[in-house]
């Protein structure tokens, strides 16, 4: 019994150390477990990692420099534009991708508004919202790539399948974002209008949509940007857009052209991302800033406020 006391203090101090570093220990354990699972997945053949470098070197040797002929007019069908670029594969493919994303975003937004207003628990009875939520999550459970495969089987190759696939996914994804935005809104306007006897459609159009419009618009822009990014992917299964050409060149092992198209996609997506960010800064909650000049569109709300303050101070002195 006498010996047990120092033993227990040693145990206690060990426990203390474990307690202090418990988060670190947990992360290390998780990482170790991930390595074990990975080992099982690849049957312990870690040597393939080393072999990859050679393949990477070959890929870059074949694809660099990129073949910028994708930016020139294609030979068939005949180009009747004065500038050859407007007949190029990169331009036509990217334009089709953007068009698919645009149409799908608009249709999906309309569908999502209707469904999300039926899925928000503060607007409809519990059982209705559960049914609609299951529908929305079913639409979301398949990525747009799988929807695209399905619609290519039903409607054949081309942009129609792409538009439908993206519209479905947009409804599922945007619907979830929107019903969360609607549920997050203040309950007082809803209560006031419900007690006065307004009908549900009237509450939706007159109270809910104006009150959540900032969120809805910001989500609409985000979804457009997301759809442009995914438009390149769904083209690979033949649903139109630049991805269609990318997958064609991949099958022909023309890696230099693929690389050029990938760079074009990258630049366009980054540009759309930046524009979308700028537009969204108009409509977010703290971005309630008047921007009288186009110069400040690309500023953050805070900087825009400061800029206009400085300007108005200077003008005031004149």
């Amino acid at each position: 019994m006498r010996d047990s006391k120092p033993q227990s203090t040693a145990l206690n101090s060990a426990l203390e150390v474990v307690k202090r570093y418990q988060i670190l220990l947990f992360v290390v354990l998780l990482a170790f477990y991930a390595v074990v699972v990975m080992n099982g997945l690849i049957d312990g053949k870690w040597g393939r990692l080393a072999g990859g470098w050679e393949n990477l070197r070959i890929f870059f040797a074949e694809s660099l420099p990129p073949d910028w002929s994708v930016l020139e007019a294609r030979s068939y069908p005949e180009c009747n534009q004065s500038i050859g670029f407007f007949c190029s594969i990169a331009y036509l493919g990217m334009l089709e991708t953007i068009k698919i994303a645009f149409v799908a975003t608009i249709f999906g937004f309309i569908g999502a508004i209707l469904l999300s207003s039926l899925a928000a628990r503060n607007l409809v009875p519990f059982w209705v919202s559960i049914i609609i939520r299951i529908l929305l999550s079913a639409m979301r459970s398949l990525p747009s790539l799988i929807w695209a495969i399905l619609f290519v089987i039903i409607f054949g190759l081309g942009p129609l399948a792409g538009v439908l696939a993206m519209t479905f996914y947009t409804i599922g994804y945007l619907g979830k974002l929107q019903y969360e935005a609607i549920e997050g809104m203040d309950s007082a306007p809803l209560e006031a209008s419900r007690a006065t006897g307004l009908t549900r459609p009237e509450i939706l159009t007159n109270v809910v949509i104006p009150e959540t419009s900032n969120h809805l618009l910001s989500q609409l822009m985000f979804m457009f940007e997301y759809n442009v990014r995914h438009g390149t992917v769904i083209g690979i299964v033949g649903a139109g857009g630049i991805g269609y050409y990318i997958s064609n060149y991949l099958n022909l092992f023309l890696y230099d052209k693929v690389f050029a198209l990938l760079l074009v996609t990258f630049i366009v997506v980054v540009l759309i991302d930046m524009i979308s960010m700028a537009v969204r800064s108009f409509v977010n909650e703290d971005g309630d800033v008047r921007r009288p000049s186009w110069l400040t569109v690309f500023f953050s709300p805070n900087r825009a406020v400061r800029y206009h303050k400085v300007r108005s101070d200077v003008e005031g002195e004149d």
Partner: peptide, 26 residues
């Protein structure tokens, strides 16, 4: 029945006119 909750229940992002019209249409 006219109901004015403590937090007023106005549509904050809409105009003054829109909010008053809500009462009129009800």
């Amino acid at each position: 029945l006219g109901y004015v909750p403590q937090k007023l229940g106005l549509v904050r992002h809409a105009s003054v006119e829109h909010n008053i019209t809500l009462g009129a249409i009800s």
